[in-house]
Design a protein around this nucleic acid. Structure first.
Length: 886
RNA sequence: GCCGGGAUGGCGGAACUGGUAGACGCGCCGGACUCAAAAUCCGGUGGUGGCAACACCGUGUGGGUUCGAUUCCCUCUCCCGGCACCA
């Protein structure tokens, strides 16, 4: 065995053999347990970034582990190939998005292969391939037939200069990214998918996903936002219908002092028609972006419409305001405002001098008011209702402080739920309200006014209207030679695409030029890998075999949208009879982002220049504390701006290719798995990479030194010295630990640390006896097996050097021998008043009395207990004794 | 603004179910090898005090529960992800 570790040679050899043997290609074997291991497919942006390497290494470790456990494992890969960056590249370089995308795919595929991932490339898909996206179109038509796709207007960002729709990302501080023009909101017709039809199931089924992180399920539940409330009609007065609002606090109806509608609400539009000032306000509300984050931080503004509605119970006339904090997209686009008990209404009412009327009180305040001396005191002052100051208890429903209605006629004295029930009954009698469930979730608008996406299969006919493209004419193929220039969709000017015949009447007609949201592409790609070559159907029986995905791995940033849309599509396809599963992903692992330090200099003109950490040298003092950071080129200091996600704009990316070229794929894989647990953010460290490389060199040398000393026999467990038994226990404890860390916990960092501990122990062993040599061989073999999912190339090479002829990838995953794990004594910690004071060694399973006596008799312990009263002795079996003294 | 998450030595992190805080790695210090350096190997390394044995302090802030809290509860601060057209 070559004493020098040469990753370039061994990695190329292993990869070539895997390719020749089609080692990663799998076929359906119904009698074997299957395992579908899926990583989120990449957008082909040009080259891999560290986030990809992390994502796919996690998936590869799980894949190889499950394979060694005997499962039939599918790990596919493909390309989320439609989207905005291809159009941006076209604008910048004049290259057609299709060519740019396919070139990127070819390059990134080679990169993935060089990292040694066990991917079945024979199932590769790209969403920009008509053989894939024709099934987007086909399913769109099926959903259209069932009313799950429909058309209505939606609000978009409009750049008035470029005359084009902008993505949220293209709106910078309310202005268009290219033109700098103030962005407007514009209403345009769009196709929607009726995801809200599945809202109840999408919410309820979260409970059936124990393999998902709690935080993702909570985020999805909050996103769906089911709330039970009451829809209330405020009559316009002259017998002309009602203004409807939805509220979860119908019990505060008597405190409603005004009604507010969104600027887009029909009532606001009507009122603005003959009120110039109001029209101006509504117009101002139309400025700026459509993003909720922007809207939610706006200063609350509003204007009286001059219109009034009638309170359904008191008959009072309430003013109708237009308010920018009322969202058209939620509920009815109108609210009843109860300033006394809603913080936003309170702020608004204070600003515009609208009346505030208390209708909720609480027991403590009421007792104070009646002069109950027991509750009089400074600590209860905060329960005074005060009209100038907001206090959180105003908005309490029922909690520790019992609240109930006041100043509310028939509701007085009732708590929240009873009052809500009463109000609903009273309103229902009058035909002015009913209980209703409202979701925060909105239907999914899928129309995009863009070129580089899947065409929506609709034909516009002057006679027949909007006509679905017949199935036999699918796919509607996107022309691949166009080059967008940033001023609208080039499809609108491409007559070869545009012009067609109406399938209904045969007249000349025009194709729909909107394309689909790229979330559509990614909502079902995992169903297509199993049958990527199937040309006659969207999915087939192979989909049935592989689904659901047993382990899905991807970035936490997809916790809501992508995962919710994919769940919705799965359910919709199930209801079309295409698949037999309810949920697509049984287990979900959400990886954290990859960060790196940001270095910069601020110029005199305030301009910031960013420097790549690879070009910066760090200086430290004698303790290792950072003293300076200097740019290598000019030796002058640069400023650190902390850690941030690797990005082009901050110039703090690390190119995975450079890493692989210098250290090899195994070092890259090892470092990225060792640096932090997968769900946490990962901070890049060049020194850490060196450390990973050093470990692999040590592992290699350990094996080479062992082999150089000649053959070793098998371990005879019955004839070992105490030191040998201890080492053997370490070997088998490591097996148990690594199996648990990889198989159950997915904490690959601690699995690697455990093997490092083992190889450290092996290096120190220095035992030339036959038994010692046999133990060394067992230890090296186990280390190689346990590390093989993480660093498959070096372990494959050592495995062969050890004389094995079969493929390591298909070797049996090791299992700890129970006999090797037993101990003759257990070390217990002794605490006095919770502080560590001593240790005692006892036999496993020693009686409590004996443990107690050993602890109390321990000399280190008696220094702290002698002369003091022993009040209590707590014994935690196998762990510690805590002696409580006075 | 709203929803979700995070904060532990000089640094990344470990401590899994409330039970020895700092595993493993990096960095740093000392030593071996070398003409020398690199590489490699050996030893040390949370802070403060002490010659030492040892003691005290210590898991973002302030409080609480407990025999015992990095872990559970409340408060605050800062950082990160998402907010429906980036993917």
């Amino acid at each position: 065995m070559d004493p020098r570790y040469d990753p370039a040679v061994i990695e190329a050899a292993a990869q070539e053999r895997w390719r020749r043997e089609r080692a990663f290609h799998v076929v359906e074997e119904p009698e074997r347990p299957k395992f579908y291991c899926l990583s989120m497919f990449p957008y082909p942006s040009g080259k891999l970034h560290m986030g990809h390497v992390r994502n796919y290494t996690i998936g590869d470790v799980i894949t190889r582990y499950q394979r060694m456990r005997g499962r039939n494992v599918l790990q596919p890969m493909g390309w989320d190939a439609f989207g905005l960056p291809a159009e941006n590249a076209a604008i910048a370089n004049g290259v057609p998005p299709a060519k740019w995308t396919w070139d990127n795919i070819a390059y990134m595929r080679r990169q993935l292969q060089s990292l040694g991932f066990a991917l079945d490339w024979e199932r590769e898909i790209a969403t920009c391939d008509p053989r894939y996206y024709r099934w987007n179109q086909w399913l769109f038509l099926r959903l259209l037939e069932r009313g799950l796709v429909y058309k209505k207007t939606g609000t978009v960002n409009w750049d008035p200069v470029d005359q084009t729709v902008l993505a949220n990302e293209q709106v910078i501080e309310g202005r268009g990214w290219r033109t700098g023009a103030v962005v407007e909101k514009r209403e345009i017709p769009m196709y929607y998918m009726r995801i809200t039809a599945y809202a109840e199931e999408l919410l309820a089924a979260l409970d059936s996903l124990p393999g998902w992180p709690e935080r993702v399920r909570i985020m999805q539940a909050n996103w769906i936002g089911r709330s039970e409330g009451v829809e209330i009609g405020f009559p316009y007065g002259a017998g002309a219908g009602t203004l409807n609002v939805f509220t979860t606090r119908a019990d505060t109806l008597y405190g409603a002092t005004y009604v507010a509608v969104a600027a887009e609400h029909p009532l606001a539009v009507r009122a603005a028609a003959d009120n110039a000032e109001l029209a101006g306000f509504v117009e101002r509300c139309r400025q700026g972006s459509v993003m909720e984050a922007d809207l939610a931080t706006l200063e609350k503004e509003g204007m009286d419409t001059g219109l009034q509605v009638i309170h359904p119970l008191t008959g009072d006339r309430l003013p109708v305001w237009v308010a920018n904090y009322v969202l058209m997209g939620y509920g009815e686009g109108a609210i009843m405002a109860v300033p006394a008990h809603d913080e936003r209404d309170f702020e608004f009412a204070r600003k515009y001098g609208l009346p505030i009327r208390q209708v909720i009180s609480n027991a403590i305040e009421e007792r104070r008011r009646r002069g109950d001396a027991d509750v009089a005191g400074p600590e209860n002052v905060r329960f005074d209702f005060e009209v100038t100051l907001w206090k959180p208890w105003y908005a309490e429903q029922e909690g520790e402080v019992t609240s109930f209605c006041v100043n509310s006629g028939p509701l007085d004295g009732l708590p929240h739920q009873a009052a809500t029930d009463r109000i609903a009954a009273l309103l229902e009698e009058k035909g002015l309200g009913r209980k209703r469930i409202q979701f925060r979730l909105r239907d999914w608008g899928i129309s995009r006014q863009r070129y580089w996406g899947c065409p929506i299969p609709i034909i516009h006919c002057a006679v027949c209207g909007e006509v679905p493209v017949p199935d036999e004419q699918l796919p509607v193929v996107l022309p691949d030679h166009l080059v967008p220039d940033g001023s609208g969709n080039p499809l609108s000017g491409d007559h070869a695409f545009l012009d067609c015949k109406c399938p209904g009447c045969g007249a000349a007609a025009r194709r729909e030029t909107d394309t689909m949201d790229t979330f559509v592409d990614s909502s079902w790609y995992f169903l297509r890998y199993p049958c990527a070559d199937q040309s006659r159907a969207m999915v087939d029986e192979r989909t049935q075999y592989w689904l659901p995905v047993d382990q899905y791995i991807g970035g936490i940033e997809h916790a809501i949208l992508h995962l919710l849309y994919a769940r919705f599509w799965t359910k919709a396809m199930r209801d079309l009879g295409l698949i037999g599963i309810d949920e697509p992903f049984s287990n979900l692992l959400t990886q954290g982002m990859v960060l790196n330090e940001i270095f910069l200099r601020r110029g005199e003109d305030g301009r910031i220049t960013y420097f790549n950490p690879a070009d910066v040298d760090l200086e430290t003092d004698a303790r290792g504390q950072r003293t300076a950071a200097r740019l290598r080129a000019d030796r002058l200091p640069v400023e650190s701006d902390g850690m941030g996600t690797m990005s082009k704009s901050k110039n703090n990316g690390v190119d995975p290719q450079a890493l692989v070229d210098r250290y090899g794929a195994d070092t890259a894989r090892l470092f990225i798995m060792f640096a932090s647990p997968p769900e946490q953010t990962l901070e890049w460290s060049d020194a850490g990479v060196e450390g990973a490389y050093r470990f692999l060199k040590r592992l290699w040398r350990l094996a080479a030194d062992h082999l150089a000393a000649g053959a070793a026999g098998a371990v005879n467990a019955a004839a070992l010295t105490q030191a040998q038994r201890d080492l053997r226990r370490k070997i088998h404890e490591t097996i148990a630990k690594v199996d648990d860390d990889i198989g159950r916990r997915c904490t690959f960092n601690t699995a690697i640390a455990a093997v490092m501990e083992l190889t450290n122990a092996l290096s120190r062993a220095d035992d030339p006896t036959p038994a010692g040599r046999a133990l060394m061989r067992e230890g090296i073999e186990m280390s190689v097996l346990l590390l093989s999912p993480i660093v498959p190339h070096i372990t494959d090479a050592i495995w062969r050097e050890l004389g094995h002829t079969g493929s390591l990838m298909d070797a049996r995953w090791p299992v700890a021998e129970p006999g090797a794990l037993t101990r003759s004594t257990v070390d217990l910690v002794v605490q006095v008043n919770g502080k560590l004071r001593g240790h005692v060694a006892v036999a496993p399973g020693a009686a409590q009395e004996d443990i107690r006596a050993a602890a109390l008799g321990n000399a280190d312990v008696r220094r702290f207990t002698d002369g003091r009263e022993i009040r209590k002795v707590i014994i935690v079996p196998g762990r510690l004794i805590n002696i409580v003294v006075a």
